[in-house]
Design a protein around this nucleic acid. Structure first.
Lengths: 158, 158
DNA sequence: AATGAAACATGCTCGGA
DNA sequence: TCCGAGCATGTTTCATT
């Protein structure tokens, strides 16, 4: 699971495509002073290495009807079930993140709901039945930042 | 700020492109039984409405050297400064999310760091100087889910 | 691992319905 | 709002270095 050695060209490519998945590879090629075929090969390589894991169009949650964003810390009745609970959470489309965490919570999740009422009904009808002992909800009323981590600098050797 | 009326074609398009930003629009057109020009126009419209907010290639954080993911709840010495603190957080590249929240915390952020030591140094050297009274860190040791919310069903009328 | 050219496919624009 | 056609542009492959 360690990370890989990326050379300067890989890094340039990642910086150019990370926040613009529709950029023409020829434009990347021109910016990097290499051929289009080279970019094609590198992107293939980065994909095979698992560094690139697909692409997305970013949708504005509010504009498609998801006005409530919340984090919920879950305490399980049986903490050893965290694995099967995580599986069950994958089937709840409103759950967009799920973390196994240190300390306080057994699981920590992020949810988008249509509104506060919808959030409550998700907690009641979908989360509680999974075997929660208790939960703590943090409602976000403004997502001031939401971005991908930057590609900061070269990777050190293994 | 409200959401918009999306028809069935908009919805189909969003479902096809949301998790594949590189899909050819002509392929979308074929799947929807409309012309390529129609898809082109719709995507333009969805972009103008702010429903589409750009695109990304998804990078695997671990594979580019970010092995620690954490959430941090921030208590500010002066809670009224939350706005300027949020601005300052934008300049810290390791901070990928920042929320204004109800209750407990003044701000709630998500951070990717190279390792635990790096996380500590970010908290000490970059976050504390912003005027923190206190902070609570939740370290994730496994991100079991990380996805975009699904496009579930038609939007109701305004 | 990169190149350049060729073959193929797509993106974009415009006139018209 | 959509279609179809035309042209510019991008993608992919392959033989070569």
């Amino acid at each position: 699971m360690g990370h890989h050695q990326l050379d300067s060209l890989d890094e340039q490519i990642l910086k150019l495509i990370a926040d613009n998945a529709r950029i023409p590879f020829l434009e990347v090629a021109r910016a990097c002073n290499v051929s289009g075929a080279a970019i094609h090969q590198r992107i293939q390589k980065l994909t095979n290495l698992g560094i690139l894991k697909g692409s997305q169009f970013i949708l504005d949650p509010e504009k498609i009807g998801y006005e409530t964003c919340a984090y919920i810390g879950l305490y399980l009745k049986d903490p050893e079930q965290f694995d099967s609970v995580a599986e069950a959470l994958k089937k709840i489309p409103e759950v967009v993140e799920c973390h196994f965490t240190t300390g306080q919570y057994d699981l920590f999740i992020k949810i988008y709901a249509k509104n506060n009422h919808h959030l409550l009904s998700i907690i009641h009808d979908k989360l509680q039945p999974l075997g929660l002992a208790r939960s703590e909800t943090i409602i976000s009323f403004n997502e001031a930042i939401n971005r991908q981590m930057a590609i900061l600098d070269m990777e050190e050797k293994d």
